[in-house]
């Protein structure tokens, strides 16, 4: 089973890298971009075949290591 984890900054947390990307896009002629928030994407190959158990494991991984919940949110998608 594959887990896809999207990690994004919480709203209210400043994202200077996102701002720099938005500015660069503007310089390239994409002035219609009003905001950019950048984050991380992590793919996990899991031995687990039980969906519920896998979801629980990945949730725990996010809490313990993959995300810093002081500043980041995460979303987990599971593929069979």
């Amino acid at each position: 089973m594959k887990a896809r984890v999207h990690i994004t900054l919480k709203s209210g947390v400043l994202d200077p890298q996102g701002k720099a990307i938005a500015q660069a896009l503007g310089n390239l002629g994409f002035g219609d971009v009003h905001g950019v928030r950048q984050g991380k994407y992590i793919e996990l190959e899991l031995a687990d075949t039980d969906r519920e158990a896998a979801a629980e494991r990945v949730e725990s991984m996010c809490q313990k290591l993959l995300a810093n919940t002081v500043i980041e949110n995460y979303r987990i998608d599971l593929d069979d």
Partner: peptide, 17 residues
């Protein structure tokens, strides 16, 4: 130390990048 939770908060990328 912030990542272990011994101290609160987090050290983010410098504002200047």
């Amino acid at each position: 130390l912030t990542e272990t939770g011994l101290l609160p908060g987090v050290l983010m990328r410098n504002a200047s990048l």
